[in-house]
Design a binder for these strands. Structure first.
Lengths: 341, 341
DNA sequence: TTGTAGGCGTTATCAT
DNA sequence: ATGATAACGCCTACAA
């Protein structure tokens, strides 16, 4: 009714309204044991009447726990990473934590800058999907954190005590490679990008699967940046070469998009003129014509698992742990026997 | 060298190290005018030596400005919304603001719960991509916020002073409908979902474009939830009806995915047996075979614009503003003349 | 130009 | 079981 806006009521206002001391209000609201039921009721109703909500900043200043966690991802525009963040946010929210989110735009420098900022905000823990987990200055910085850290599918920087959740890329990629070999492909081209763990694991899995096959089978790796451009350029080289590789594995969403562009530009038929396996993406592949075979990690799950792990470690500091999540391989018509082309 | 970890140094430590008063340190570090160059240099180097970083919580408690903004989106797993968040985060980070992110999982109840939580954390402003901007209890809550608010492509709740950035869905959808009409389609089926602004604008645009065409042209709207299931079910009904509509517009990513499934399940050829226009999505559509025509809003831009608008309003409180962003229509082979089927 | 002191809202320690 | 009071780290009148 009044035109004045009441300032948000604080604990002192509640104390006065209930006619008790501030400390008593604090105890009652925080569920301490030594509070009489009558007093608790009185304070609860006073707080309700005033619409009291504690100031989390002040609580954090006093208790040194902010009930917030910092999440840094290399690129939030990447739907895969967004899914991971969504999963983590959900778990953390349900546990009463807030998420401070930053994106480092694939720049190692921003990784560190963002982490520093989050430290300044006194987050209780970190979930990190970094641009470059191996950057030399990073380890020093993380050592200062003094709070639990969970890495998303990354290698652990040397001599650092952090937990992590990783994907078993090896299993899925091995199955993909064997599938192609079983179809009769003798040469498999692998496009990967970035120096992070996924690229390395994928390369390792495919090369060793091909090596094991023996019989003149071989694997050519196209390494570069994690980008559509690299995917398109590499696939272009593969397809324009004579003799061309009959099968391509694109190690990531952007690389897959690039490869698709190169294939389309040349008017080639998927699963006939060239076989293709993608990774990560779940949006593009299944509805494609024809559907594209895929090795995929459940990105939402890695977010959930990372949050669970972090919550556990924030609650009771313990030794660092590592969790491995499976990857799936879906055969789809984009893979066929090597063509006559 | 020492095994002890030093507690993060505070302003008092810097003051003692430099042999001056805390207030002087505060002034020097915050760039006040009345500080002698010599003193500034002395304090700067002391701060550097101690690796001092101000505690943002304490600053916020004192100044009532936290340099943080709350972002709530209805579903972070939606790549479109993730792109908007990524855009906003970038601008805010560059302006020195941190992002507190929550997702409301398409539940109006969580919208409010999350906003309340963000208010408790004293954010300086909000960017909201809500699940239900019209929920009756929402307006009251937002009125309590006392900080600038920017809505993402939503209607403004009655009697509320907020800014917003919207897409001109009307323009893009009108062009799409006219394109289909020009190709000779007489009946256009529109699948929309959700009660939010985009669905309403799209329906309005398509129905009026079809009405204007006259000559027995008509439009059938399939309204429902914003989900793959609704898209698939609606497209199924459209395609199984006799006579079937020859053109479908799917008003959103999930609906498009559903429609594609229905079309594929019936073995129909896009652009021949049935014409299809999608909305929003940029990942699936362009690389599809054949490429799918699309009305698309630039989601990253809406994030950027929302952040810019919010920053402006946080800096100098002013009247609420509204910004309209264009939508583009891309003709692609998924649209052809009505078939003989 | 610099120092002193009070308070932002909360919790924790100590009395009572 | 409850109350008074001192911090947490910072900023900002005001005094010097």
């Amino acid at each position: 009714v009044s035109g004045q806006r009441a300032p948000r009521s604080n604990i002192r206002a509640v104390a006065e309204h209930a006619g008790v001391a501030m400390s008593t209000v604090s105890r009652a609201l925080n569920g301490h044991v030594d509070v009489s039921p009558a007093m608790r009721e009185r304070i609860d109703s006073a707080a309700r009447e005033l619409g009291y909500r504690p100031n989390i900043l002040a609580q954090g200043l006093r208790t040194r726990r902010t009930r917030s966690v910092g999440i840094t991802v290399s690129d939030l525009s990447d739907p895969a990473l967004a899914a991971a963040v969504a999963g983590a946010e959900r778990q953390l929210r349900r546990a009463g934590y807030s998420v401070l989110l930053t994106s480092s735009e694939r720049a190692a420098e921003l990784d560190r800058e963002n982490i520093r900022l989050l430290m300044q905000r006194s987050v209780d823990g970190f979930i990190l999907g970094l641009s470059d987990a191996q950057h030399p200055a990073l380890a020093d910085l993380l050592r200062e954190a003094e709070v639990p850290i969970v890495l998303l599918d990354h290698d652990v920087p040397a001599g650092l005590a952090v937990s992590r959740v990783v994907f078993d890329h090896h299993a899925g990629m091995t199955r993909a490679a064997r599938h192609l070999l079983a179809l009769g492909h003798r040469e498999i081209a692998l496009i990967v990008g970035g120096r992070a763990r996924p690229a390395r694991e994928r390369r390792l899995a495919v090369t060793s699967a091909v090596d094991e096959a023996g019989g003149g089978c071989h694997c050519v790796v196209y390494d570069g940046s994690f980008s559509v451009a690299h995917g398109e350029r590499s696939a272009g080289r593969i397809l324009d070469r004579t003799p061309q590789a009959s099968a391509i594995i694109a190690g990531g969403t952007l690389l897959l998009r690039g490869a698709l562009r190169a294939i389309r530009a040349r008017g080639l038929r998927l699963g006939v003129d060239v076989s293709l396996v993608g990774c990560d993406d779940v949006l593009v592949a299944d509805l494609h014509t024809p559907p594209i075979a895929l090795v995929y990690p459940d990105m939402r799950s890695i977010g959930l698992a990372a949050a669970d792990l972090l919550l556990e470690q924030m609650l009771t500091p313990a030794a660092c742990r590592q969790i491995s999540l499976p990857t799936r391989f879906s055969r789809r018509p984009s893979c066929g026997p090597p063509g006559s082309r």
